[in-house]
Design a protein around this nucleic acid. Structure first.
Length: 210
DNA sequence: TACGAATAAAATTCAGACGG
DNA sequence: CCGTCTGAATTTTATTCGTA
């Protein structure tokens, strides 16, 4: 529950939001704000305004708009910038299938994406940063499928196993796979691949090109 | 000196926040 | 919605280290 007041005109704007900072930013940047408030800011300057928090709840079960309506009622309506006596919110609104389809279509050309080629602000980066226990992956395990994907993506040097007479025995996607096949340490595989020496007096390992 | 274990480095997926 | 981001988890590959 917030209030932005103009000290000179003695007028107030009452608002509420799930994300206080985000909503305040809307008003400060003049996007999706209240037009009366915006005009007044333009006229008197932002330094004529003060910002007050009336109520602060972390519990999502608290219906902020109900409280907001009560607060609005407690002021003479003509002393407010607000247009509506009843507060409402789009919290929990779901896009229609049509709207989603439209968005998808527009974004098919990825240069059309609002973020295309842009950099995030320092502030946004700070919000995104989640070190330690705050990280969504903290203390979680990757699934077998995920591990497989990672393995596949990382294995870009296929290897071929030859015998002493240069006959191809088998090909492998990476060193680990070959190590398992021979039941030998992967360190050894890497070493012999690099040196080109004969392994166990039997095998030669080379990079495989098809 | 040769091996495997341990560790480091680089690269990748994942889940989640941001924001037009 | 989806492109821009992050850090944890995990993998492959490269390097270091102790042991016989």
């Amino acid at each position: 529950m917030i209030n932005i007041s103009n000290l000179i005109k003695r007028k107030e704007y009452i608002g509420s939001s799930k994300d206080l900072y985000q909503r305040l930013l809307d008003h400060l940047k003049g996007r999706d704000s209240n037009i009366r408030l915006q005009r007044s800011i333009a006229k008197y300057g932002i330094e004529s305004f003060i910002f007050v928090i009336y109520y602060w709840y972390k519990d999502p079960a608290v219906i902020l708009t109900d409280i907001e309506t009560e607060v609005i009622k407690s002021f003479p309506f003509e002393d407010l910038y607000n247009f509506k006596k009843e507060a409402n919110s789009s919290l929990g609104y779901k896009h229609t299938i049509k709207a989603i389809r439209k968005m998808k279509l527009r974004l098919k050309d990825k240069t059309k994406h609002p973020m295309y080629g842009k950099k995030h602000s320092i502030f946004a980066l700070g919000k995104i940063s989640k070190p330690g226990v705050k990280n969504p992956m903290f203390n979680k395990k990757h699934t077998i499928e995920t591990k497989k994907k990672m393995s596949l993506a990382k294995s870009k040097t296929p290897l071929a196993l030859y015998n002493k007479n240069n006959n191809l025995i088998k090909t492998f996607t990476n060193q680990v796979e070959l190590a398992q096949y021979l039941n030998i340490s992967k360190s050894t595989i890497g070493r012999y691949l690099k040196s080109g020496n004969i392994l166990l007096d039997k095998f030669i390992i080379r990079k495989f090109k098809e």
